[in-house]
Amino acid sequence: MSVVSEPALASAGAPVRRGSGYLRFAATRVAGSLGSLAFLLVLNFFLFRVLPGDPARTLGRGRFTTQEQLDAFNAAYGLDQPMLQQFVTYLRTTLHGDLGISLKYRVPVTELIADRIGPTLLLVGTSTVLAAVIGIWLGVHSAWRHGSRFDRFATGSSLTLYSMPEWWLGLLLIVVLAVGVGPVPGLFPTGGLHSVDVDVWSFAGVLDTAWHLVLPVATLTLAYLADYAMVMRSSLLDEIGADYLTTARATGLREAQVRNRHAVRNALLPTTTVVALNIGFIVTGAITVETVFSIPGLGLLATEALSVPDYWVLQGTFLVSATAVIGLNLVANLVYGLLDPRVRA
């Protein structure tokens, strides 16, 4: 792990008071993030206006017959205004927290996003946590006994799962575990987030949602195990020959203690970065899994908006997910700075 050791020398010379140094560091990072946000706000508008297609024509095909009907639609949703005018309107409303009206669903985009973000967070959040925990565990044990049968099995199977298309894996789980094959009974629902007549917030409702989530979460977890397992495995392999481990062993620590308290702790940094990055992308959702299991999430909303193109939905989802990525990167940066003084330089 050369990354960790190099910057240590740079800041070693002049001791700086911890408080002010960190504040300056934090201020730089916050300012940087705000700059990114401002850029994002502008880009967001023009990025989607260059998409091919005309919403009124896509939506109205076979329904609107006359030019008059097309004009009525465009006028009602402000699409007849000059681009610059639309941009000014966009800036004003967005800064007021209004993300516009969806052209397809004709409801405020904020409402749509509020409805859709819960399922996505639940699905992708749960499976990110599971994949990270299981993946790291697999990575640690594969690396510690690298070349062993366990290593070959764990590495092989996680890579196989990683290379499978998610929709195929999901469909396989549906056929085997939801419908049932031969002696295997159908245990889980084929799709959706909850049953129709259950109060979501009751105990039965929570249970019902968990029951519906088992297969999609399992699909995503299995698919992304390798992401964490491989990073963990390789960074731990870097540490395995290190002298401090010999020292630790010499003090009489048991092998498991050497591994968990010395080696893994040092090897965990790159994996933390991967986790932090992935958490930023949670809001974007997992489009294929949302499709296969019919989970009404944010990813699906954005994908379907592309074909219209539903400008305000695209802008809204892009703004929310990009803000989440920027925000979480900022948090990760700030935490790093707090944990490891070397990165402040």
Partner: peptide
């Protein structure tokens, strides 16, 4: 306006 768009024809 929008009322006309869907049913005007």
């Amino acid at each position: 306006t929008v009322e006309k768009a869907t049913w005007g024809s």
